[in-house]
Amino acid sequence: MRPLLLIYLHGFASSGQAHKAELLRAWCAQHQLAFIAPSLPIQPQLALSSVQETLTALLPFYRVGLVGASLGGFYARYLAQQAQLPCVLINPVVNPAQRLQEAIGSVTHYHDQLRFSWTQEHCQSLAAYRVEKASVPCRLLLQTGDEVLDYRQAQLAYPEAELCLEEGGDHGFAGFERHIPTLVAFLDQHAADQEG
């Protein structure tokens, strides 16, 4: 059986050095598990095509599980259905084309503090990507205290997902490190099922 590889996709204006990415990276290093967390381009079509190219290159050698947070959760779910991969979504945005309208303008990147322009065209390009229900194994990590997104939207959008719903918390998913072993076990099991 091919080894498991976890790919983490970060949220809007974040990077591959996001806090959850670093927690996953450290856990995977400790357990000798392959892991990558690319810093994605701002443009949605470039972000998705870059991950699709990575998947094309790595799928012959690895069983892949996708983990995505916020906008990265939407990306992970879309890419999972395209490549038939299991995924874990952490406080994901459900309708980014609409939700990110309010970000239009000059945005500060969380990690390097550089500014970039987010445009109506970026939002429109997100509308081209559709997510279907019940097509791939999916685990949903939600916290009711998410101050950025209404957790109920993701709960309604992914009724087929294995749900972990916690009271309180925040958009960054407080206490994420507690969920890493379960998250990895879910991806490992379903990636093995799909290979077999």
Rank of each mutant, 00 (worst) to 15 (best):
M1T: 14
I7R: 10
Y8F: 13
G11P: 04
A13I: 05
A13S: 12
A13E: 08
S15E: 10
Q17N: 04
K20A: 04
A21V: 05
E22I: 09
E22G: 01
L23A: 12
L23V: 07
L24Q: 12
W27L: 05
W27S: 10
C28Q: 04
A29V: 02
A29E: 08
H31D: 12
H31T: 15
F35M: 05
I36D: 02
A37G: 08
P38G: 02
S39W: 02
S39T: 15
P44M: 08
P44A: 03
Q45R: 11
Q45E: 15
Q45T: 15
L46C: 15
L48D: 06
S50H: 07
V51R: 07
V51A: 01
Q52S: 14
A57Q: 09
L58M: 07
L58W: 11
L58N: 02
L59F: 02
P60A: 13
R63T: 02
G65A: 08
S70N: 06
S70V: 00
L71V: 00
G72V: 01
G72R: 02
G73R: 14
Y75V: 07
R77S: 14
R77V: 07
R77Q: 14
Y78K: 12
L79I: 13
A80W: 08
A80N: 06
A83F: 14
L85P: 08
C87H: 04
V88M: 07
V93S: 04
V93T: 10
N95C: 05
N95S: 10
R99G: 00
G105K: 06
G105M: 03
H109T: 02
Y110G: 08
Y110P: 06
H111I: 14
H111K: 12
Q113E: 11
L114R: 14
L114V: 09
L114H: 15
F116P: 12
E121V: 09
H122G: 00
C123E: 06
C123G: 05
L126E: 04
Y129Q: 02
Y129P: 05
V131F: 04
E132L: 12
K133F: 00
A134G: 05
S135W: 15
C138A: 09
R139P: 06
L140W: 11
L141F: 13
T144N: 06
G145A: 11
L149C: 00
L149K: 01
L149W: 02
D150T: 04
D150E: 10
Y151W: 11
R152L: 01
Q153A: 07
Q153R: 15
A154V: 11
Q155R: 15
L156N: 10
L156A: 15
L156I: 13
A157R: 10
E162Q: 09
L163Q: 12
L163A: 06
L163E: 03
L165W: 01
E167M: 03
G169F: 04
H171I: 00
G172S: 14
A174F: 13
F176E: 01
E177Q: 15
R178F: 12
H179P: 00
I180W: 05
V184H: 03
Q189W: 07
A191S: 03
A192Q: 12
A192T: 13
D193P: 03
Q194H: 00
E195G: 07
G196C: 00
G196I: 09
G196S: 04
